[in-house]
Design a protein around this nucleic acid. Sequence first.
DNA 1: GCCC
DNA 2: CAGTACG
DNA 3: GGGCCGCTACTG
Length: 772
Amino acid sequence: MIKDDESLEMKKHFFEGLYSLDSINEEDDRYEDNLVSTLLTKTKDPAIRNPRTLPKLTRARTTATSAARSVSSSSRAAVSRTLSLPAEKLRPSTMPSRLLPRLSTPTAVASSARPKSSRPPRLKPSTFAVSSSSCTAPITTRLSSPSLPDISPMRTPTSTAPPESSRMSVVGSGGSTKRKRSSKAATQPPVRESQLIFSGLVFYFIPNDIKNPARKMRVQKATEFGAFCINEWNNQYITHVIVENNFKYLDVLKYLKLDKLPENVTVVNQEYTGDCLHHGRILDHTQKIYEIRGRAPLSPPKAPARPPSPIKEIPPSPQSLQIKPSRRKKILESTQTSSHPPSSLSGSQPFEIDPPVPTRSDYVASFAPEETTPKDDLDMMIDEAKKIGSLPLEDEEEESKSAEEIETTDGEHASPEQVKRQKKTKGRRGKSNKPGDYLGAFQCMQKNDGNQMEGNPNQRTIEILSEMQRYYEMLNDTWRSLGYRKAIATLKKQDHKIKFANEARELPGIGNRIALKIEEIVRTDRLRRLEYTKMDPEDEALRLFLGIYGVGGVKAQKWVDAGHNTLDDIKAHVRLTPSQQIGIEHYEDFQQRIPRDEVKQHGDIVMRVAHEIDAELKLEILGSYRRGAKDCGDIDIMITKEGAEAHSTTSMISFSDIWLATSRGTESAAKWHGASKVLTGPWRRIDFLVVPWAERGAALLYFTGSDIFNRSLRLLASKKGFRLNQSGLYKDVMRGRDRTKFTDGILVEGESEEKIFEILGVPYRPPEHRVC
DNA sequence: GCCC
DNA sequence: CAGTACG
DNA sequence: GGGCCGCTACTG
C-alpha cells in the first residue's frame, strides 16, 4: 500500500525524528532503496514534547531531578546543536523546529508528502516538525484516506445491546475471572420476556459441561433467553441438542451412547443458538449451516431412525468420554446456570461435568517415556530455586532436604497433588542437580536454545497451547494466560516431545490441567477445549480487535460491546489514537513474523544512519533477535553511547538530541515505538530504546528478554531483596514506610549484564538461553 | 493457568 | 489517572 | 487463598 516514494518520505521522517538528520536522504541515496520508517508512537520526554507538562512532571519527581531536568532541557538545544549532526548538514533553523515538531500539527506532514519525483534537497522545517511529531499522524494521514480521521465518536450501544449484554451478564455471574465481560454483563439489564425466544425449550449441550467459556456462554445465554439447559440426557424433555462443531454425528452418538438420536429432538451445531438470539427468533434448524458434520441432511426432524431403545436413561455417561469432574474446577467455575432447573433433573448443577479434555492418562503410566533426553530444568525453576537459597549450595541443600522430609514423612499422606509436586521437585532436582544446580540449569538453557533454533519437538503442542493462552488473554484473564505462557516457555525448552501427562506434570510451570491438555494434544493433535472457543462471533471480533496495535482488552471489549465486528466498523465509527490508526492500517503486516535477515536489514540501515550522525553511537539489535530467533515479532534496537551518563544529561542529549530526555537521576531512557519497512517489504514494528551508558547492562537484559525470563529474574531479584528494572539492579533501601522510597534503593549494578546475574546469584545465561 |  | 505496551 | 515484573515507559 505504501509506495516507494512514500517510503522514502517516511524514511526521512523517521530519521529526522530520531536523529534529526534531515539531510541524510538527500545526500545519501543509498538509503533510498533500503528502508523507510516512521515512528508511530513516538515519544519521549514529555517535557520536550510538550513543555507545558514539564512543571507537572518535575513536581512529581524529586527536586534534584527536576533541577537536573530543567538544566538538561535548557542546555538541550545548545547541545543538540553542537552535536548531533555534522554541522554542515544541520541547519540552524532545524533546531527549533525540531523541538516544536512534536507539538506541531501532523497535518502538515500529510501535505508535505510530495509527489515522488522531486525530492527537495532538504526538507523544509515544516516537514521536520511533522516528522517528528508525527510519526503517527503523517502515516496515518497518508495511508489512510484523508477522510478517515475522526469520524463520529463511538456510537453508543443501541437496541441490540440489551440482548447480548444480558447474555453476557449471565456468563459473568459465574465468572471465575474478572473478565470485563463479566462485570459489564453484570450491569446489564435483564432480558425482557418478549425476548425469551427459547422459552419452553430444553437444550442439551454436547459436550455437556460448561468448561469451555464459549460454550458456557452459550448455555447461559440460552438460559437467559428462556431455554432450559439440562445436563442429563432425557429425551423426554430435551427438545434440542446443541453440538459443538468439532463433534461429528457419530461422535454425538458415541457421546450419548446411543445408536440413533431420537426423532423428537432437534440436533444442531453450536451456531444455532447464537444465530437464533441474533435474529431474535427460533430459526429453521434444518438449514445446512446448522447441520452437524458427518450426518445425513438433517431433514426435518426425523431422518434418523429411532434409537434402539428409548435411550438408556441417564446414561451416567455423557462422560463416558472421559469427562471427568474436577471438583477444583467446579468450585471455581461452576456457574450454575441454575435458573430453571426442571424438576427431577438435577438442575441444581447443570453442567458440572467437566473437562471436556479427555485425558486418559491411565495408560500413560505404562509408557513412562523418559526416553530421550532428560528434560532440563527451567530457568524459572532455577530462579525459583535460587531465590530460595541465595547460594547455590545453600539452596540445593535446602531443597533436597525439604524434599526428603516430605517424602519420608508425610509423603504418603500427602494429597495426590502434593505427592506429585514432591515428585516433581525430586525429579527436577535429580536431573539438574547431580552435577550441581547451576550446571543443571545451564544445560537446561542450552537445550532450550537448541530447540528453539531448530524445530521444537513440541511445536504442535506449543501452537495449541498458545492458542489457549491467546484465548484467555482475549478474555482478559491475565493470570490464566500467564500460566499458559509459563507452561509454553517450559515446553519450549524441552528437547524431546512431551507425550504424557505424567511427564509433563513434572515440568515446572505445568500443572495437572495443562499436563492433561498436553497429552490430549499429542494423542489427538488438537484440543477440544480450544475448538470450543473458536466460534463465538463475539470472541472473533474481540480477537480481531486485540490484534490491533494499541488496542487492549478494555478497548476491544468496549468496541465489541458497542456492536462493532470488523476493522471497517472501527475505522468508520471509532476515534482512534494515532497508534491504533497505524495498527489498523498495518494490521496484516504487523501480524506477520519478521525473518531474521530482514531484522538485520532494518538494523543495518538504522545503524548506518545513526553513525552518520554520531559515529560513537552504539546500536544493537536486541529482542528475540539477540536471543537467536529465526524470526521475530518486531525489531528492537538499543542505542547508547559511551560516556553518555544518565546524569550528564548533556551527554545523553548529545547523542540523542530530541530523544531522551530524561529524568530521574540514575535512569534515563527513552523508548520509541514505531514502524519501518524495507522497500517492498511489509511494515514492521520497530522499537528503540535509548539508554545512558551506565545503564546499558540492565537495558540489555531488559530488551533482550524474553519477557518471561525478565519477569522471573525480576521476581527472583525481589525475593532476594533487590529490585531489577531496565535501569539497573537496586538493593532496597528502606522503602515502604512513609518516605516514598527515600532512595529507590541503591544502584548495585547497571552496566554489566553479567554482573547482574552474578549479584543475583544466577549463572550467566547467554541470550540464546533466555528463550523461555 | 501454576505455585506456594 | 487508566490503558497499553515493552522485554 | 493469594501472588504472579517493573516504584517500567508512554499516551491521552
